[in-house]
């Protein structure tokens, strides 16, 4: 029992890690305050679920999730190319609400508020990943791949271009850097991994509905990124582990499960506020939330 519980927590940590690290790429490294990141998570989940329910093998559905989310990222980058700061944040938040509305109302495809139940557990080349320990392997692999990919990007000269665009886009352009292309690439890549995280979620919980991907998830991921420290990958890992584990004791003090959800979000929101007020560089310490 205990083992199953911990496995469950570890799976969640891997999924959130993928989400948070991918958000670091667009927000922490490139300075794109994409409050719509959860929309990519949702798109990936729905794409993967629908593909799997239509009979596609898991790997194909998984890939479809990443690809669809990446395309959505590219689409979002077009109108937001010239937006900065607050405007970008709110436009991307608007995008999130639009995606939400589509998930809720496109009954023919997404089944609207009823959601998609019965999403098959992953099976790769005859090997079933229905068992949670096996699934953990899959989730951990994805999280590791995301971490390594983003770290690689960050360490290359391209990564420095992204950071330059974040710190002073005008100066970057006057050095000849194509800031628009850099931002679009970062958004696409971050969306791709968010989509993969969505696929993992869908195939783990085997049920998704539009209410799964809500503002609460956004605060969770945002908190992980800021508390971890913008552009700090190691800090993000620590933040994800801490934030996933922190509210767990609430379950054991007899809190009804309907309250645990909002309580978790309240805790995340409160910690985020504290960090913004006291230590805006988070755990990682290099870039200040500015």
């Amino acid at each position: 029992m205990i083992e199953a519980y911990f496995t469950h927590l570890l799976i969640l940590i891997c999924i959130y890690l993928t989400l948070a690290i991918s958000l670091q790429l667009s927000m922490g490294f490139t300075g794109l305050f994409n409050l719509g990141h959860i929309a990519f998570y949702a798109i990936g989940a729905y794409a993967s679920a629908l593909a799997a329910l239509a009979g596609w093998p898991f790997l194909a559905a998984f890939a479809a999730a990443g690809a669809t989310a990446a395309i959505a990222g590219w689409i979002l980058s077009l109108p937001t190319a010239r937006l900065k700061g607050d405007y970008l944040a709110l436009a991307t938040l608007g995008f999130f609400f639009v995606v939400n509305a589509v998930a809720l109302n496109w009954n023919d495809v997404t089944k609207g508020a009823l959601g998609l139940p019965g999403i098959p557990k992953p099976e790769i080349m005859g090997v079933s990943f229905a068992d949670n320990t096996a699934f953990l392997g899959l989730a951990a692999l994805t999280a590791a791949a995301c971490f390594l990919a983003v770290r690689r990007i960050a360490k290359t000269p391209f990564g420095n271009v992204l950071q330059a665009v974040r710190d002073d886009e005008l100066a970057a352009r006057s050095l000849g850097k194509d800031a628009t292309k850099a931002k679009a690439t970062a958004l696409c890549a971050s969306a791709l991994f968010a989509g993969l995280a969505g696929s993992l979620y869908a195939h783990y919980i085997t049920f998704i509905d539009p209410f799964t991907f809500n503002i609460g998830e956004l605060i969770t991921v945002l908190a992980m990124v800021i508390i971890g420290g913008l552009a700090s990958l190691e800090g993000t890992v620590l933040a994800v582990v801490v934030l996933v584990l922190l509210p767990e004791p609430l379950r054991f003090i007899g809190m009804p499960s309907s309250i645990v959800g909002p309580a978790r979000q309240a805790i995340y929101a409160a910690i985020l506020l504290l960090i913004l007020a006291r230590r805006p560089r988070g755990f990682g310490g290099r870039v200040e939330a500015q």
Binding site: I153, T156, F158, G159, V161, K177, D178, A189
Partner: peptide
Amino acid sequence: DGSFWKNFVGAN
């Protein structure tokens, strides 16, 4: 440094 793939695969 502007090309994502070139940099990712280490060609730059």
